[in-house]
Simulated scan of single mutants.
Amino acid sequence: MRNLDLQQKERAEILQRMSQAITENNSEAYVQAFNDLAASIQEAVRAEYEQAIQSNDASILAQRGVRQLTSEENQYYQAVIEAMRSNNPKQALTEVNKILPKTTIDAVFEDLTANHPLLDAINFQNTGALVEMIVSTSSGVAGWGDLTATISNELAGSFAVIELGQKKLSAFIPVAKAMLDLGPAWLDRYVRTLLVEALATELEAAIVDGDGNGKPLGMTRKLSGAVDGVYPRKTDTAITDLSPTTFGTILNTVSQGPNSKRRTVPELLMVVNPTDYYTKVFPATTPRTTDGGYTTGVFPYPTKVVVSPAVPSGKAVFGLAKRYFFGLGTSKGGKLEYSDEYKFLEDQRVYLIKLYGNGRALDENAFVYVDISGLVPVVQKVEVTNIDDFPTA
Rank of each mutant, 00 (worst) to 15 (best):
L4G: 02
D5T: 12
I14C: 03
L15C: 08
R17G: 03
Q20F: 05
E24I: 06
N35K: 13
A39F: 09
I41Q: 10
R46V: 13
A47L: 10
E48K: 13
I53W: 11
Q54K: 13
L69T: 07
T70Q: 09
Y76H: 08
K90F: 04
V96T: 06
K102H: 12
A107L: 05
V108I: 15
E110H: 10
A114H: 07
L119S: 00
F124L: 07
E132P: 04
S139M: 09
G140L: 00
G140D: 11
G145Q: 11
T148E: 08
T150M: 08
P174W: 00
P184D: 08
R189W: 03
Y190V: 06
I207G: 04
D211C: 01
G212Y: 00
K215R: 15
K215I: 08
R233V: 07
T235N: 13
T245R: 11
F247M: 11
L251E: 08
N252F: 09
T253K: 11
P258T: 06
R263H: 10
N273Q: 12
T275C: 01
D276Y: 05
F282Q: 13
T290W: 08
G292W: 05
G297N: 15
K304Y: 02
V307T: 12
K315S: 08
K335V: 01
Y342G: 01
K343Q: 13
K343N: 13
L345Y: 12
L345N: 14
G359T: 05
A361S: 14
I372M: 04
S373L: 03
V376M: 13
N386W: 09
I387W: 10
P391W: 00
T392S: 15
